[in-house]
């Protein structure tokens, strides 16, 4: 992400001195996070979707689609996740043509790392249909529509919300006379099941080292001034699930611990807010269904 645009020496100096005394260009303190605006269920043809905006800048749209696939021989009683992140040239002209390829790979891997493995908390066994043969593959496709810094955090916020919005079609497995397994996919959306343990899915909070201090939820300019960054992935029990340092600078151990602590604290708040929002969204939809009203999908921009 380091090659994203240029920043002048004067601007860098301005940002660094601001961080030293705890002032940022947009009026936030070092630990302040732009309140994420999350909307669920925007994409009608997906099984789950969400969009996350941070401030006026960052804007990501995530869709989750269930697809039938072959079970992985190494883990034959589980389903799979496939993540793909695309930066649209609407976010920046640098993403034109093949310009976004490296960043796409980097972001896809960052989301994949948070969602696969024991730390993800998702019950992948739920996605198994016929052990060793068929399973559901959750295709998580994200589009970065606008790039205003801190995209990894926004991607995970949107992905977690989209997973909470996801309903997996019900399958009925029957054993045939010759011992083979046959299954039917129930097309009724009413019977589709939510994913289990979505509340265990972690969120990521990124701390950027600028000068001798650090900031959370950096804007694009701040990211350009950062010498190093630390991605901390935290789940709702407060456990650190993953930590990754990137950037070419080095971080002192004392600052590292402070960054980790601040990120952990922020992640707890974000998780609480999001769980509350998801609960509200679900009760709202259930109430509308009970009254027989149509559930309208929010529009993307209009």
């Amino acid at each position: 992400m380091a090659s994203f645009g240029l920043v002048s020496q004067v601007e860098r100096d301005f940002v660094e001195r601001g961080v030293d005394v705890g002032i940022r260009a947009d009026g936030r303190a070092r630990d302040d996070y732009r309140p994420p605006r999350v909307e669920l269920g925007l994409v009608s043809q997906s099984d789950g979707s969400a969009r996350c905006q941070l401030g006026d800048g960052t804007d990501v749209l995530v869709s989750v689609r269930c697809e039938l696939g072959q079970a992985d021989p190494a883990a034959d009683d589980r389903g799979r996740l496939a993540v793909s992140v695309e930066c649209s040239p609407s976010a920046s002209q640098r993403f034109e043509g093949r310009g976004a390829d490296d960043l796409n790979t980097e972001l896809s891997e960052a989301v994949t790392r948070a969602l696969t493995g024991p730390q993800s908390g998702l019950n992948l066994r739920q996605l198994c249909i016929v052990p060793g043969m068929h399973c559901w593959v959750l295709n998580i496709d994200a589009i970065v529509l606008n790039y205003g810094g801190n995209v990894v955090d926004a991607l995970l916020i949107a992905t977690r919300a989209a997973l909470a919005d996801t309903r997996v079609p019900r399958t009925v497995v029957q054993e045939m006379e010759d011992g083979a397994m046959d299954f039917e996919v129930d097309d009724d959306v009413e019977n589709a099941q939510p994913l289990e343990h979505v509340h265990n899915v972690p969120l990521c909070v990124t701390a950027n080292k600028i000068g001798a201090g650090y900031v959370l939820d950096a804007t694009l300019t701040e990211e350009l001034c950062a010498s190093a960054r630390l991605h901390v992935t935290v789940n709702s029990s407060g456990q650190v699930c993953a930590a990754q340092k990137s950037g070419d600078g080095a971080i002192e151990p004392s600052l590292l611990m402070a960054m980790l602590q601040a990120a952990k604290e922020q992640a707890r708040r974000l998780l609480e807010q999001q769980d509350e929002q998801i609960r509200r969204h679900e009760t709202e939809i259930a109430a509308k269904r009970a009254r027989g009203e149509p559930v309208k999908r929010p529009s993307i921009f209009v």
């Binding site: 979707s49 689609r65 697809e67 793909s84 040239p89 043509g97 496709d141």
Partner: peptide
């Protein structure tokens, strides 16, 4: 002009190369 299609835009998921 660059014309891009989101992989989830149509009924069947399809990732198109540029």
């Amino acid at each position: 002009v660059e014309y891009l299609v989101a992989p989830f835009s149509a009924g069947e998921r399809k990732k198109r190369s540029k």
